[in-house]
């Protein structure tokens, strides 16, 4: 029982990442009708926004610290980040410590900009081309983006720690009245889950309760009619692409403490996210979120030793097996709408 709860918790953070990426993919597909193979690269770019910001914040110059001496008795040279000069040592070190959450503020405008440039510059020209062409060109774009990142940041994972406060673990069992020290769970993963919930809620609320969101939903249902009503739907869809990119980006930012970012992390997530989208139902936003969490948790449950003893290797293939089963029995996915991408 404890093990099951622990695995469900473990599945939540992976599920959150799947859900966020799948949400963005579905937004793009639902609005623009484009299958975006570069979406994993956007997730990766978001993660590297965090790396960039933390590097910018720790840019430093050497100063001579009179109060300390090295073993020869000379005054010690220390690296002094510019942030400390500006804000003083106290606030400066706090800012550096909190670089990952701060990166969200940095990543959102950057990712929206990247998304809009991508849509206006490239994807716009592919609306009328077959889906195979869209897959291929975004696949090429993904290769290019990840190679550029590899060129500037190298091929090795770059550790990007969470703020000091969140580095510990949370004794989940004790909190809900079970034996202590059984279900222990890192704080940051809980935060990731909460963060994902907030972002998903925000996207849904935005689409549901704002006029902009209403127009976008109308455009998803019938683009032509909305256009005939004199609304510039293309512009709104471009903004939605930016938002989808930002969602993938912040998902990447917050994921950096869980998994040190490297240039191919996007591709690793992309393949699974596509499976998630297809399982959830192409074009269905709730489906994408639901499938993301379900598959994340299933993957965790399948890696319990009891399950692996029963069916060896199941943890490696469970997601793909579920996808194959779903596609064969419910071709539209869990919550797919009728008439979206059928044959």
């Amino acid at each position: 029982m404890d093990a099951i709860i622990l695995q469900i918790l473990n599945g939540l953070d992976k599920g959150s990442a799947y859900a966020l990426i799948a949400l963005g993919l579905t937004l793009i597909f639902g609005t623009l009708g484009v299958v975006n193979f570069a979406h994993g690269a956007l997730f990766m770019l978001g993660a590297f926004c965090a790396v960039t910001l933390s590097r910018l914040l720790t840019l430093s110059h050497t100063v001579i610290d009179e109060t300390k001496t090295d073993f020869l008795g000379n005054p010690l040279k220390v690296d002094m980040p510019y942030v400390n000069d500006i804000f003083g040592p106290e606030i400066g070190s706090t800012i550096i410590d909190w670089s990952v959450p701060l990166s969200i503020l940095f990543a959102i405008p950057v990712m929206i900009l990247i998304g809009v440039i991508m849509e206006r510059g490239l994807i716009k020209h592919f609306y009328k081309r077959p889906h195979a062409d869209q897959i291929l060109v975004t696949f090429g774009l993904a290769i290019v983006l990840q190679e550029i990142v590899k060129y500037y940041f190298g091929a090795n994972p770059i550790p990007t720690p969470a703020p000091d406060v969140f580095r510990g673990s949370f004794d989940f069992g004790a909190a809900v009245g079970m034996d202590p020290n059984v279900i222990i769970y890192p704080y940051w993963r809980l935060i990731y889950f909460a963060f994902a919930t907030v972002i998903i809620g925000a996207v849904f609320a935005f689409l549901r309760f704002t006029t902009f969101g209403m127009v976008v939903r109308a455009g998803m249902a019938d683009r032509e009619t909305v256009g005939l009503l004199g609304i510039n739907i293309d512009k709104r869809f471009t903004i939605m692409f930016g938002i989808a990119a930002a969602v993938a980006g912040v998902a990447g930012v917050m994921y950096t403490p869980i998994n040190s970012p490297n240039y191919h992390m996007g591709m690793d997530f992309l393949v699974l996210s596509f499976v998630v989208v297809v399982v959830g139902g192409m074009g269905s936003l709730p489906g994408a979120v639901l499938a993301g969490f379900v598959l994340g948790i299933l993957e965790s449950l399948a890696s319990m030793s009891a399950v692996i003893d029963l069916i060896p290797g199941i943890n490696q293939v469970i997601i793909y097996m579920v996808a194959i089963l779903i596609l064969l029995t419910r071709p539209r996915g869990l919550m797919g709408r009728k008439g979206v991408m059928e044959e």
């Binding site: 299958v35 889906h131 897959i135 393949v271 596509f274 499976v275 297809v278 192409m282 060896p312 290797g313 490696q316 293939v317 793909y320 097996m321 996808a323 194959i324 596609l327 064969l328 071709p331 991408m341 044959e343």
Partner: peptide, 24 residues
């Protein structure tokens, strides 16, 4: 049994499955 993007994803899923199984 499926076509279009679904076919691509299905073949991708099978290939990734074979890869993971061959590895483990």
């Amino acid at each position: 049994r499926r076509s279009g993007i679904y076919f691509s994803i299905l073949t991708l899923a099978f290939a990734q499955m074979s890869y993971s199984l061959a590895y483990s």
